[in-house]
Nucleic acid binder design. Structure first.
Lengths: 98, 98
DNA sequence: TGCAAGTTTAGCAAAATAACCAAATGTGTC
DNA sequence: GACACATTTGGTTATTTTGCTAAACTTGCA
């Protein structure tokens, strides 16, 4: 496991749409069509985001009938977010992008 | 705490130089000049990476004499990396950048 | 004060990422 | 097989990130 492998996971999580997807999937698997309702983006854009998460190993997909269902591969990803709550609270300029 | 705040933390960690810096600082604070020896990059580039980590709230700096020392603000960031070991292990194509 | 070492900031060009539209692919139903 | 629905892939453009050089600070010491 190289540094670059880990970096890919962080990169995958470093986007608001993808992070919200992960938080959504933490509550249970969802098909692409349901995820789409969460955002005001093109379905092709959503599909790309999901594939980034998949390539990073964060989610897995399964086709059932016409739909594709995504789920988290590793529930521990939630712990990461909990930790981040603490870290992000220490930002010098909360709310202002770095 | 917004999604964007969390995203900034992930973005900060989503770079090989910055991630290696975090892993280094996890063992204890270091001055910039020591960190510089870890990489083959310009010191101005290193300084920028450190400021990204600082703005994200991941590290804090302190000037003592001529040197500036950086340290992690939150040791829990290590748990994040441990979790990632598991997640990254599930990547479809291990070792190949997404 | 004046100089040297250590670090940060500014500005620019190259590379990576993101979003859209359009086209292609895969799956179930008739 | 043909059609409709769901999703992915290709291509293009706009935006963001990265890393360099050069310049600007900051601190300690002669």
């Amino acid at each position: 496991m190289t540094i670059d492998d880990k970096v890919q996971v962080f990169k995958a999580l470093a986007h608001p749409v993808r992070l919200r997807l992960v938080e959504k999937l933490a509550k249970g698997e969802q098909c692409v069509c349901v995820c789409l309702e969460m955002f005001d983006i093109d379905i092709s854009t959503l599909s790309r985001h999901l594939s980034v998460l998949k390539n990073a190993g964060i989610v897995a997909d399964e086709k059932r009938g016409k739909n594709v269902y995504y789920r988290l591969t590793c529930p521990c990803i939630l712990q990461v977010c909990d930790c981040l709550e603490k870290v992000a609270g220490k930002r010098k300029k909360p709310g202002i992008p770095v």
